[in-house]
Amino acid sequence: MKPFTYERATSVADAAKASADPSVRLLAGGTNLLDLMKLQIETPARIVDIGRLPLKDITETPDGGLRIGALATSTAIASDPVVRARYPLIARALLSGASVQLRNKATAAGNLMQRTRCAYFYDTTKPCNRRIPGSGCSAIGGHSRADGILGTSAACIAVHPSDLAVALTALDAHVETTNGQGTVRTLPVADLHRLPGASPHLETDLAPGQIITAITVPPAPPGEQIFRKVRDRASFAFALISVAASGPRYALGGVAMKPWRASASEAVLAAGGDVDEAVAAELSQARGHGHGEYKIPLAKRLLGAVIRQSRGDAA
């Protein structure tokens, strides 16, 4: 961990202003950032602790949706009665996403902003375009069992580790952001993260100084909410593949550097196509990388099963 100065933010606007400086990192729960700082993958000169800002509320919105403060912890969200009753998908994703110890600390916005768990990103002795632009991608040709099958590039095949993001994407949730000037912008969670392309180090569409203040979730569509996560252990493990369903909307996790909305599947189904066609439409472009090839059939099976379950078809 490189030396840094520690400050505590006193207002959201100030935190946003400070974050415009690339040498600044905002510290919320710290469960990802501090780990990365110990490894010097993150080397901020200034830490602005935003943990005490009043962004923790979870409130119902007039349209019947939900507004989750950026600093609400996973535990607070998953324990919220409205979330449990109306957005069980969010609760399920969070509850399967980490240990209780981590959930007590990790925040909603931090969850979305966490960085990949690709082993080669973490191993600082290896080339990684995401960590050091232009250095190469060690996952390609390496042990890429956990890496992606959709939206990958020749520069990066990592996946985003958030389960919450997958749930929020199926729910058409948005992030609400602000900057130091008080300009509020919203963007869909599905559009928050960038696919790697040629510049995997650019991870989100947030501008410098733009910070997430809340997640807004519209009223859930009718229909079952489902979250299925395949992983190596029964608990305390990242998803190999996950699928979220909220009524007729589906999203995949563990496949790309962003939560992957299954828009192609949804379109096929909306047009009256069958489940197999819908699954094929989404995953026909999938490309595996060595040890990760299995993710294609696994994603197909899981997406198909979740679609059938959500439509009430027999499994």
Partner: peptide, 25 residues
């Protein structure tokens, strides 16, 4: 644990990558 034949190092270098059983298992 996989020994990466390109680098001579283990791929898993933490307890999130090396999966000893957890309680739920």
């Amino acid at each position: 644990n996989h020994f990466d034949p390109r680098y001579g190092s283990f791929v898993a270098q933490d307890l999130a990558g090396y999966h000893m059983p957890a309680h739920a298992d």
